[in-house]
Nucleic acid binder design. Structure first.
Lengths: 219, 219
DNA sequence: GAATTTCTGTTGAATTTTCAACAAACGGAG
DNA sequence: CTCCGTTTGTTGAAAATTCAACAGAAATTC
């Protein structure tokens, strides 16, 4: 576990936890690490909602697929970020989404009941972990607000511009890279891919943006 | 405060808190109660994100209004439910939404910093409150997943049917009442009101549902 | 480095939504 | 009970999306 210390220190779940305590805690929590190749399913829809996942390297996406097979991408999860925590913390039966490896990645899985319910060793870190989970969930809720603000727009152009302007703001620059290819971006914005491509072309011709694949520049 | 005890006991924030402790706690937290008439603004966009609100009676809606004045309704908050907790817990500067009284209502407001940061009396309930907030935020996250699942659909009909089927499931019955009028439902589903009315008529003619104003029956 | 697979952009037709305007139905106030 | 403001339903035209199909570009594989 030692080699993961650097990334785990950046993980919001372990905020305010001293490095020396972290290793002991991981043992107590029964944390395990697994490797997943690109496109592999880390957690499948319908699986028990037991685990909190931590992305140690690479990245993952949260997918929702409806009855007709239409894919919707809820979010992108990068290094040091959590996934599955909402379902585990709410103690629901099964997760309603799938978590897919977006590139080869290493994932730490922790049984959430070990965090929520005090362990036999009665180690004093549960309170801090629960506080950190609360903070993380509050942040995730705000991210969902932003996503809804984007998909609430009625046209592909407005959705795209709202998304790109947010990304520029997050990146702190007019030039930025997005973590999606075209189909994924369409599935995140909840629009048709070909229409999205057409809209990007149109914006380029109008001189509103420049782009090369995933690299965008707002003018 | 005593007259609010019954409703406060149902509030997820005070889960596992004994009734006798609750009153003392409210003083310690500096809780105050305000009345709002229908359509009044309880919290306005841009306000400091200090307060957690609890609906004691009536109901409220979370509104998001974009640059062009288009309203989007994020959620309905009924009696004993919380609002604003995500913004307060994430300790962001200002709230990005407005909370509007949907009918005459009584609202309890609590400065969240009193919950998050141990008070001078060092009363032992902070841990339970933080745990409860975590649970509540996890539940709210799942509600947002459901909302996104609905608005991800591409047609008014699909959004409407996804919404109605969810409401029927929640109500545990094919007959149920929804908390929105037509314009509000349109703003929740992120579609055009007149198109929504037309779609409801069409579904009725096709024998898929019956309705009288807010009362729906799926067949 | 050639072949193959994946991704992106383009187009036109069909479908659907939005928009604006109006009429009918409803509900509350006096 | 009647009046009046609000809500809901209806319609047609304009705008936008989706869908399907294909071609070119880029990346991956062998």
């Amino acid at each position: 576990m030692k080699k993961y210390l650097e990334i785990l220190r950046k993980c919001p779940l372990f905020d305010q936890i001293e490095e020396e305590d972290l290793l002991r805690m991981l043992g107590c929590l029964g944390a395990r690490v697994e490797h997943f190749d690109k496109k592999y399913t880390i957690l499948a829809e319908g699986n028990p909602a037991k685990y909190i996942g931590i992305v140690l390297s690479g990245s993952a996406q949260i997918h929702q697929v409806d009855y007709y097979g239409n894919r919707s991408i809820l979010s992108e999860v990068g290094a040091a970020q959590l996934f599955g925590e909402a379902f585990a913390c709410a103690e629901i039966q099964a997760i309603p989404v799938s978590v897919i490896a977006n590139e080869p990645c290493e994932i730490m899985l922790i049984d959430c009941s070990h965090i929520l319910h005090t362990c036999s060793n009665n180690c004093g870190f549960h309170q801090q972990l629960i506080f950190n989970l609360m903070k993380d969930l509050a942040t995730k809720t705000i991210l969902f607000h932003r996503k809804i603000e984007i998909v609430a727009k009625r046209t592909t152009r407005d959705k795209l511009m709202a998304y790109l302007m947010l990304q520029a703001k997050v990146a702190g620059s007019n030039t930025f890279e997005i973590p999606f290819d075209r189909q994924e971006l369409a599935d995140y914005l909840e629009v048709d891919r070909s229409g999205l491509s057409a809209e990007i072309s149109k914006l380029r011709k109008e001189g509103i943006l420049e782009n090369r694949r995933n690299l965008f520049k707002l003018l």
